[in-house]
Amino acid sequence: MTVLAGGTDLMVELNFGRRRPEHIVAIDRVGELAGIERNGHVRMGAGVTYTRMLADAGSQALAEAARTIGSPQIRNAGTIGGNLGTASPAGDTLPVLAALEATVVLRSKAGERRVPFADYMTGPKKSVRRADELIVAAEWDEAGPAQTYMFVSTRNAMAISIAGLAMVVDRARKRVGIGLGSCGPTIIRPADAEGFARGLFDEAGWERPHRPSESAAKELGRLVAAAARPIDDVRGTAAYRRHALAVMGARALSRVAQIA
């Protein structure tokens, strides 16, 4: 059985005859999957579209990521559940879910299983989701406004990310999460960069906005790039991806440190 959400991935496979599933279950009109609950904790149903995230995402970085995706037509159809289901390293919401330390909620006849995002993806387009499980939601703790997502690509619309970076600074919990997309087989969390950033916020004060020094931003970028495991492919070279990540890491830090 194959599940069809927004169709932006599966329909391409069907149109080109790459897949001929015997049974397709379309879930795009399942109301229970389309809800967003917010009460300090966010539960986003798998059927929430990117268009909906622009207005109400429960995360600034997620709204920014949704904004980078495709075009109005694609954002009206594609869903967070679909992004998780496809589990591409280039999925734009996935670095954000990594940085938010989100939980993926899976359900089967046997019951519900909650998987930390860090354990969810196992490789390019591979995840721990079993064939009998449906992705029903993603959940995370609201982390405040100091967060951003950015990506590099050939144009602002309709382009697969060459490298993407999400940064979340949860000032209340004194936590820094960074997620890197399109630069490894799964979404990467650069632990050294996160530790370095925590040190900067310890020093500057978690509750206050600050302007990081140029050398601190540069060092963060260097640590981000060092954690990536990019490859050369049609969209860009590994060297270009590392360079882009270093620039984005520095820029993201400078941006979010000034938001409190």
Partner: peptide
């Protein structure tokens, strides 16, 4: 036939989508 070009744009229940990415049965 992959949602890249928008030439098949239609309104489905008043929402702009690419008809090539909509399963007819749905």
């Amino acid at each position: 036939e992959q949602g890249e070009c928008g030439s098949c744009s239609v309104l489905l229940d008043d929402v702009l989508v690419c008809a090539c990415l909509v399963l007819a049965a749905s």
